[in-house]
């Protein structure tokens, strides 16, 4: 292809990517080194409400001649990162009383990181293994059943994540139907939303349930391309079902497994919907939830853009670190193929 043709064809997508991906990333990076403040002044203000009048000394934003707040971006270096990572507190915990998890947990970032990592790595094998089993099962069904079964299996994936999380929550919270059912069976008072670990299990379960269809569809498509002659040859050579799976099918769909793992790692490291849907923020928080929480406007009408940007950057770095092994593998394979 001629260089100019190549440029013409790629230019639109290049411009879009710069505009909608690279530029926002750059802005977030810049903001993470800044405090976004209102210019403030301390004044005396007389305030009369139904409970009486009082004059108070308060700090309020200065307004310009159009009546808008004057915003000020101050460079603060790594202060936002320090405020989130709290290295001094961390090092004092570790050096003073040995390694005490409960104290490290009291720092929001590590609490969130702990949950995010557990969430990501526990759901991954479940999604891949259960998705593969499902695909293998559907693959041997008679053709007439395949369509309806595939449709039903896809349903959890179609549901909007927050809605799905809410419905699972309502099944279990308080005297939800399933809680009552469990209470009847076990003859015990059950409160699944009164401690962290039960909510965590529900959230893990929900994510696995919600993502399996994705893995299933990809694997099922992959199984259609397995060389039938190879399987038959293995069968003639006396390989049993498990051996055929291990030595022929899995190597064949390995690139797909890597692909599903890649997508799932990226997706679940950004866990957020579950925290909101299950009202879990009192017990468990994730890195993305921290960003959201910093971005929420409080009653004074301000938000922590600096710390929100810093958590975003840290989340991004985290995703990159997690993806490195998978990406390296893919890269190596590509190279081998070229040779």
């Amino acid at each position: 292809m001629k260089k100019s043709t190549f440029l013409v064809f790629t230019m639109p997508s290049f411009i879009m990517m710069t505009l909608f991906i690279a530029l926002p990333l750059l802005i977030v990076l810049i903001q993470s080194f800044q405090f976004n403040q209102d210019v403030l002044e301390t004044i005396e203000r007389e305030n009369c409400d139904p409970f009486g009048c009082k004059t108070e000394t308060i700090t309020v934003p200065v307004l310009d001649e159009n009546g808008n707040k004057i915003k000020n971006n101050i460079w603060v270096g790594f202060q936002n990162y320090k405020n989130i990572l709290k290295f001094e507190q961390l090092s004092s915990v570790i050096s003073n009383d040995g390694f005490e998890w409960s104290k490290i947990r009291s720092i929001d970032f590590y609490k969130a990181l702990r949950f995010t990592l557990t969430f990501t790595f526990i759901t991954l094998p479940f999604v891949i293994i259960l998705g593969l089993i499902l695909a293998l099962c559907v693959n041997v069904l008679i053709n007439r059943l395949k369509g309806p079964i595939i449709f039903i299996t896809l349903l959890p994936f179609i549901i909007t994540p927050v809605i799905g999380a809410l419905s699972i929550k309502w099944l279990f919270i308080g005297d939800g139907i399933l809680t009552l059912f469990l209470e009847n069976i076990l003859d015990k008072d059950i409160a699944l939303f009164s401690q962290g670990w039960t909510i965590e299990i529900l959230m893990l379960f929900y994510r696995v349930w919600h993502t399996i269809p994705f893995a299933f569809v990809i694997f099922y498509a992959g199984l259609q391309t397995v060389d039938k002659e190879k399987i038959e040859a293995a069968f003639v050579d006396g390989a049993n079902r498990l051996q055929r799976l291990r030595f022929i099918i899995i190597p064949h769909i390995m690139p797909l497994i890597v692909f599903v793992a890649l997508i799932h790692l990226m997706d679940s490291y950004r866990v957020f919907d579950e925290i909101v849907g299950f009202s879990a923020s009192g017990f468990r928080i994730s890195l993305q939830w921290m960003t959201y929480d910093f971005l929420r406007i409080d009653d004074s009408g301000t938000r922590s853009i600096g710390r929100a940007s810093a958590t975003s950057v840290l989340t991004m770095i985290g995703i990159i670190i997690i993806l490195i092994p998978v990406l390296r593998r893919t890269f190596k394979e590509q190279k081998e193929k070229r040779l």
């Binding site: 308060i58 923020s281 409080d298």
Partner: peptide
Amino acid sequence: PASAKMSTLHGVLGAAIGD
């Protein structure tokens, strides 16, 4: 005692006390 500082403290309280 509504004020900007109170709103800030209110948010911090709501997040910290659960633990």
